[in-house]
């Protein structure tokens, strides 16, 4: 099921976008390159531009100017007037509310995501995320943790180029969060591509992310290995230090 890739994906971002936050107008100005197939965490206070950045990468929000290039494919170029639609970018995006389709069962939610129908692949994904017994359930009957697993399985079923997770664990209690961090790691390893995840939880960041991009007021203030950016121990003072 894992994609056989012997190369690293590359994502180049250089964009500007005006944002309206609770603190007023600000600009999102991001210029960075991600060169390895790792799980990166976007970290920063509310209104820093984390969700806007993910939406821009998915093609759901249009930057004012700049360029986004993924593996030599231009996704966005304001000068050349290129702006690939979300459909063309093939990005797995997991919303905070998981956005499972209420009219579909667990199995249908997953199979709906497939470009080419493959029942065996759906079965594999359901087994992998322990969803076998829930296959005929509708989302309204599922717990938060079960919904998260379905959303991950659905994102993987589309075989996306890039996995974007917008606070995937924020709606869950602490025990569930710990259990499902493993599922996120598993999804990232299966996909073997760049995964960008927003999180406010330092324990979570240390447990999951190899690297961190720290945002403040729309700009990157630090980027690098998790320990280098956030320090060695995820203690409470780090929250205060970064005003999170």
């Amino acid at each position: 099921m894992a994609r056989k890739k012997y190369y690293s994906d590359m994502l180049k971002i250089d964009i500007k976008r005006a944002m309206l936050t609770s603190e007023g107008h600000t600009n999102l100005e991001i210029a960075t390159e991600i060169k390895s197939n790792e799980l990166l965490c976007l970290f920063g206070h509310s209104g820093a531009g984390k969700t806007t950045l993910l939406r821009i990468l998915a093609g759901l929000t249009k930057p004012d100017k700049g360029r986004i290039i993924f593996n030599n494919t231009v996704w966005f170029d304001s000068e050349k007037k290129i702006n690939l639609s979300p459909q063309q970018r093939n990005v797995g995006y997991m919303f905070q509310d998981y956005a499972l389709f209420p009219n579909m069962t667990v199995e249908h939610n997953i199979s709906f995501a497939q470009k080419i129908k493959d029942k065996k692949e759906v079965e594999k994904l359901m087994k992998l995320f322990d969803l076998d017994i829930l296959r005929n359930q509708h989302p309204e009957k599922l717990s938060g943790g079960q919904k998260q697993r379905v959303a991950l399985a659905r994102a993987l079923a589309a075989k996306p180029n890039l996995l974007l997770l917008d606070e995937p664990l924020s709606a869950l209690d602490i025990d569930m969060r710990l259990a499902l961090q493993y599922e996120i790691k598993k999804a990232h390893e299966i996909l073997n591509t760049i995964t960008l995840m927003i999180s406010h939880d330092l324990q979570e960041v240390f447990h999951l992310a190899g690297s961190v991009i720290m945002l403040r007021n729309g700009t990157i203030i630090n980027q690098g290995r998790t320990e280098e950016v956030l320090g060695k121990k995820p203690e409470k003072q780090i929250y205060n230090k970064y005003n999170v």
């Binding site: 459909q87 797995g92 995006y93 389709f101 659905r154 996306p160």
Partner: peptide, 12 residues
């Protein structure tokens, strides 16, 4: 988010 998820899944 339903619409946007469907778009990111490649649906027209």
């Amino acid at each position: 988010s339903y619409r946007e998820t469907a778009y990111t899944l490649g649906k027209s």
